[in-house]
Structures are given as C-alpha cells and as structure tokens.
Simulated assay, not measured.
Amino acid sequence: MFAVIKTGGRQYRVVPDDVLEIGKIAGDVGTIVQLGEVLVLGGDTPVLGLPLVAGASVAAEVLDHKRGPKVISFKKRRRKNSKRKRGYRDELTMIRITEILADGKAPTIGPRPKREKPVVAAPVDGDEAPAKKAPAKKAAAPKAAAAKPAAAKKPAAKKKPAAE
C-alpha cells in the first residue's frame, strides 16, 4: 500500500519504512506525528481524494531536525557599483513513515523511547579516578609588527579673506 501526501507545499509518494527529508514540522525527535493531507491511497483499488481522502492519514516517526545546504544568491550589475549577496539554509525534518492509516484509525505504534547516552559510574572510595588530560595549549599569538612612525602632518593652510 502506498500514499501520496502533501506537506510543506510539496507532494511525496510514500510507503511504510520510507525515510524522507521534508520541511520542518513540529515534534521532538523520537515522537510519532500524523500527516493528515493524503491525496491518494494506493493498493488493490486506488482511492483519489477530492482534494483529500477523507479519514486517511500517515503516521511517521521524527528522526532528526537539521539544516539543509547553504544556498547563496549573488546579484551584480556591472559598471553600476551595485551588488547583493544573500544566503539561506532550509530547516529540515527527517521522518520515517511507520504506517498508512485509513478510515480515521489512530496509529498503533506509540512514541519510541529516546536513546540516552551511557552514564559513567562515579568512582568508589577505593577506586582511583581516571587521569585527566591536560588541556591543550593555545598557539602563541603572533607578535605585533613594529608601529610605524606617524607621517609628519602639515599645518592646515589658512584661508585668506576674500577681497571685495
């Protein structure tokens, strides 16, 4: 079974276990979100929506929030001393399609537990704490170049009053 969904102004054909990069949606990493704009449900007999399929939705797990590649827009008008540079990065969400739902059903898969980093146990009185590395030294700052003597300033020329 497949579905065609609409999110972020784009349409995607999805099947369960697909991984997609879509425009940013609300939801913490590891939670299940429902995408309700289903345009087509496919299977033995496809169902076309007018414009949406009533009661259909797609459940997806949020895998990650990230930013897309940097896009730079540079415009220059030659011989006019005019230029403009702008940059932009899309906010993206990675999702995995878990199931395609029809007839107003709720997702059967709940939110998955978040993976936590393993905690290192504190040393017991008899154990010694592992030796810590000394912080790396920063590179010495380059020496400042010798200051150049200021050029001799000429006294400002006084203006003579205009003769009438």
Score class of each variant (00 low, 15 high):
residue 80 K to T: 02
residue 38 V to E: 00
residue 47 V to Y: 04
residue 143 K to E: 08
residue 107 P to L: 09
residue 152 A to I: 09
residue 2 F to L: 07
residue 137 K to T: 13
residue 21 E to Y: 14
residue 4 V to G: 02
residue 83 K to I: 02
residue 10 R to Q: 08
residue 111 P to T: 04
residue 108 T to Q: 14
residue 138 K to N: 12
residue 147 A to C: 06
residue 142 P to C: 05
residue 9 G to Y: 01
residue 103 D to R: 15
residue 130 P to H: 00
residue 76 K to N: 03
residue 65 H to N: 06
residue 132 K to R: 08
residue 16 P to S: 11
residue 48 L to Y: 14
residue 123 P to E: 00
residue 113 P to M: 03
residue 36 G to W: 04
residue 123 P to N: 00
residue 99 E to A: 06
residue 84 R to E: 00
residue 155 P to C: 02
residue 87 G to L: 05
residue 14 V to E: 04
residue 159 K to R: 10
residue 107 P to W: 13
residue 65 H to F: 08
residue 5 I to M: 03
residue 46 P to G: 03
residue 13 R to H: 06
residue 84 R to N: 07
residue 16 P to Q: 01
residue 80 K to G: 02
residue 82 S to M: 09
residue 11 Q to P: 01
residue 153 K to V: 07
residue 90 D to Y: 07
residue 156 A to T: 13
residue 67 R to N: 11
residue 107 P to V: 10
residue 108 T to Y: 13
residue 107 P to R: 06
residue 161 P to R: 13
residue 39 L to F: 04
residue 79 R to V: 11
residue 117 K to Q: 15
residue 158 K to I: 06
residue 143 K to G: 02
residue 21 E to G: 05
residue 32 I to K: 02
residue 26 A to P: 02
residue 2 F to I: 01
residue 144 A to N: 11
residue 131 A to D: 00
residue 44 D to E: 15
residue 35 L to M: 01
residue 82 S to P: 00
residue 121 A to G: 06
residue 7 T to P: 05
residue 77 R to Q: 14
residue 19 V to H: 05
residue 26 A to L: 10
residue 29 V to A: 08
residue 4 V to S: 03
residue 145 A to R: 13
residue 36 G to R: 13
residue 73 S to C: 09
residue 4 V to Y: 05
residue 72 I to N: 11
residue 108 T to D: 14
residue 27 G to N: 03
residue 72 I to V: 15
residue 60 A to W: 08
residue 85 K to D: 01
residue 106 A to M: 12
residue 123 P to A: 00
residue 135 P to D: 09
residue 19 V to N: 08
residue 152 A to D: 10
residue 99 E to S: 09
residue 70 K to M: 15
residue 25 I to L: 13
residue 129 A to S: 07
residue 125 D to W: 00
residue 95 I to N: 10
residue 2 F to P: 04
residue 70 K to Q: 15
residue 90 D to G: 06
residue 53 V to F: 07
residue 15 V to R: 15
residue 135 P to T: 05
residue 31 T to P: 00
residue 66 K to M: 12
residue 108 T to S: 15
residue 5 I to G: 05
residue 57 S to T: 08
residue 73 S to Y: 15
residue 142 P to S: 05
residue 134 A to R: 15
residue 57 S to I: 04
residue 75 K to Q: 09
residue 18 D to W: 08
residue 42 G to S: 05
residue 100 I to W: 10
residue 7 T to H: 09
residue 15 V to D: 13
residue 105 K to P: 06
residue 105 K to R: 15
residue 112 R to G: 12
residue 144 A to D: 11
residue 104 G to C: 07
residue 136 A to V: 10
residue 77 R to G: 08
residue 23 G to H: 10
residue 155 P to F: 03
residue 107 P to C: 10
residue 101 L to A: 10
residue 88 Y to G: 09
residue 91 E to L: 08
residue 110 G to S: 04
residue 25 I to Q: 07
residue 40 V to L: 07
residue 96 R to I: 06
residue 15 V to G: 13
residue 121 A to E: 01
residue 25 I to V: 15
residue 105 K to A: 14
residue 52 L to R: 15
residue 27 G to K: 03
residue 138 K to Y: 07
residue 141 A to S: 06
residue 148 K to P: 02
residue 50 L to D: 12
residue 60 A to Q: 04
residue 23 G to P: 08
residue 142 P to H: 05
residue 14 V to P: 01
residue 3 A to Y: 11
residue 118 P to R: 03
residue 85 K to I: 13
residue 77 R to A: 14
residue 93 T to V: 09
residue 155 P to R: 14
